[in-house]
């Protein structure tokens, strides 16, 4: 088992674990953060698969901007829900 395969297996376990956490958790905030974590692990996996362009895009857009979009909407819904 080479180092590359070992790292890929580690990343696979981590991203699947984060995906399971996103599905079973009760709190939506934790779910959003775990989905961002799935994207982050996937972007490292893209790097292993010799796709640095895709890795950059996934890290910047998939795990960065998407998470913030969720938090903006979540913040607005919370504020209106408590009124």
């Amino acid at each position: 088992m080479t180092l590359l395969t070992f790292m890929a297996a580690l990343l696979a376990v981590a991203s699947l674990g984060a995906a399971v956490i996103a599905l079973v958790t009760r709190s939506t905030v934790v779910a959003v953060l775990s989905a961002g974590l799935v994207s982050l692990f996937a972007s490292v996996m893209f790097l292993l698969l010799a796709a640095p362009d895709v890795a950059m895009t996934e890290a910047a857009i998939g795990s960065g901007l998407t998470t913030f979009l969720f938090f903006f909407v979540l913040g607005r819904i919370r504020r209106e829900g408590t009124k």
Partner: peptide, 10 residues
Amino acid sequence: PGGGFQGGAI
């Protein structure tokens, strides 16, 4: 590596 989409996101 990089380009318009990544730079736009930054």
